[in-house]
């Protein structure tokens, strides 16, 4: 009774084509041998991939994005894990409020965060600095890290911890040997999701990033608003391929569905 009819399969094919179309378009255009936007009708060329190497801006921006994402995901996890344990394990006055506060960036449009940070940093003189940008990204991704850590801390039974205590483990040993390993999948998932979210973020960063702290999405956006050329297509193709490889690795070692569900 669970088979799909031909209409469903045709719909599915069209849907998949719709999803893949713009990505395939970008990839196709990046292989053009012309100096302008066109499909590679006269054979494939790698000239626009070589051109990336002549534009160190993009490579620097890529490095900036990776470093920023590593930094903010790590800090977000360090903030989130103790908070998740407190929120999952304790009932205390203000618990709901604290949890809502730490999750609130999910409800704030990135644009609003962007303008708020722009004004705040220009007022306190942090405008254009890396740490200003990083702090903004930490705020942005902490809810994702917290949500996944919270889910695994809530789902975890405390029996194993009690057992370890009755066997003579100290509080810190229990935390290190029992608690952390048990919620590790949630922590790892939160870190990965935070990394990806930070790496891809554009709207807020457009306001906060300066020319010296340009992330890759900001660099690409600024480029597109000036001109759409095959160079931006080849940069995008590299990004698509890297993301795809990352996805395969994640799917193999972690399970992509968990990441996606955290994102939704």
């Amino acid at each position: 009774m669970r088979t799909l009819g031909p209409i469903a399969l045709i719909f599915h094919a069209i849907f998949v084509a719709f999803i893949m179309a713009p990505l395939l378009m970008v990839i196709a255009v990046s292989f053009t041998d012309k100096g302008y936007l066109s499909l590679p009708t006269d054979g494939l060329s790698l000239r626009w991939f070589k051109a990336i190497l002549d534009n160190p801006d993009f490579i620097e921006a890529f490095g900036m994005s990776v470093w920023l994402a590593l930094f903010s995901a790590t800090v977000a996890v360090i903030i989130s894990v103790p908070a998740a344990l407190a929120l999952a394990r304790h009932k205390f006055p203000g618990r709901e409020l604290i949890s809502a506060f730490l999750l609130s960036p999910l409800m704030i449009p990135h644009l609003v965060l962007g303008v708020a940070f722009l004004q705040f940093y220009s007022r306190i003189g942090l405008g254009g600095s890396f740490y200003g940008l990083a702090a903004a990204h930490i705020i942005l991704v902490t809810p994702y890290a917290l949500r996944l850590a919270l889910a695994s801390a809530t789902g975890m039974s405390t029996d194993a911890e009690h057992a370890a205590m009755t066997l003579g483990a100290s509080k810190f040993t229990v935390f290190r040997r029992i608690t952390v390993p048990l919620i590790l999948p949630g922590i790892a998932g939160g870190w990965i999701l935070s990394f990806i979210t930070s790496f891809d973020e554009l709207t807020m960063s457009v306001f906060v990033a300066s020319p010296s702290t340009q992330t890759l999405p900001v660099k690409m956006y600024n480029h597109i608003t000036q001109t759409i050329d095959p160079l931006i297509a080849s940069v995008s193709t590299v990004l698509i391929v890297l993301t795809f490889l990352l996805m395969l690795i994640l799917d193999r070692f972690y399970g992509l569905d968990k990441i996606f569900i955290g994102k939704g």
């Binding site: 936007l37 990806i196 890759l216 597109i224 990004l239 992509l256």
Partner: peptide, 27 residues
Amino acid sequence: FLLIVLGPLLISVVVRTLGWALFFGGS
């Protein structure tokens, strides 16, 4: 297909919009 359908979530919005800009542009 889950990978194909959901994977774009992990690809920058700029890249995905660029793809449509290439489709939609005059040329």
